[in-house]
């Protein structure tokens, strides 16, 4: 019934409650500090194109539905409602063609290494890799074993390492935030690919 009331110009319906007026306040246009947008005039924003691209990319990092070992259980928990990777714009994509990055969630043995490499090659650029857990970082308890790749960085470039056996979902979320920080700097400064992001504020790359 409220919607039926006419207001403004023409005959467009208006959902605004009676008595409320649109008021532009100067403070309404304030934008978050981390946003690449800068307001120059009311309703006019400018941005560095690379920053704008990075901003979009880092807030929609879709990861591949690919779990290798027990760390995958923790990854699924992180993606589910309790920790909810979705609120960072990340969620599972079931195809490497649609994925931006992949969690290496578990022990990579030499038979699995070919599949991991194949899936990595099928992902479209730009793409990132997050090594999750001790096994994916270094081989973990199986390092030196007869059938285990000692760290997935032997076969594909890794951007973020998250240690732990398995890492807590909070640690994985921190890894994702590190990756977002990395993606946000892409093309703006020298970011060597395939090396670990440093821990802590600011990262270890700059």
């Amino acid at each position: 019934m409220e919607l039926k009331r006419r207001c403004g110009r023409g005959d467009l319906p208006c959902a605004r409650p009676e008595g409320m007026r649109l008021v532009e306040k100067p403070g309404d246009h304030s934008i978050p500090k981390e946003s690449p947008l800068r307001r120059v005039l009311p309703g006019v924003f400018i941005a560095n194109l690379q920053q704008l691209l990075n901003w979009g990319r880092k807030n929609s990092l879709w990861y591949m539905t690919f779990g290798i070992a027990c760390c995958a259980i923790e990854m699924m928990a992180t993606g589910a409602s309790r920790w909810d990777l979705d609120r960072f714009g990340s969620f599972f994509r079931a195809s490497p063609r649609q994925a931006d990055f992949m969690f290496i969630s578990g022990t990579v043995n030499e038979k699995m290494a070919e599949a991991v490499k194949l899936l990595y090659d099928q992902m479209a650029e730009p793409k990132w890799v997050l090594a999750m857990g001790a096994c994916a970082c270094t081989g973990g308890p199986f390092a030196g074993s007869y059938n285990v790749v000692d760290g997935v960085d032997k076969i594909i470039p890794v951007d973020v390492y998250v240690p732990g056996c398995p890492p807590r979902p909070e640690a994985l979320l921190d890894g994702l935030l590190q990756l977002q920080r990395l993606v946000g700097r892409e093309g703006l400064e020298f970011v060597p690919r395939g090396t670990a992001a440093g821990a802590g504020e600011g990262g270890g790359r700059s």
Partner: peptide
């Protein structure tokens, strides 16, 4: 194990008798 694997690793003497382990490196891929 992979079809290319040499030896049978759960034999007790595998560790002593196995050929020098060729590490998988990034160049392999």
């Amino acid at each position: 194990l992979a079809e290319t694997f040499e030896g049978h690793p759960l034999r007790k003497d595998f560790v002593q008798n196995r050929p020098p382990r060729r590490r998988v490196t990034r160049e392999d891929y």
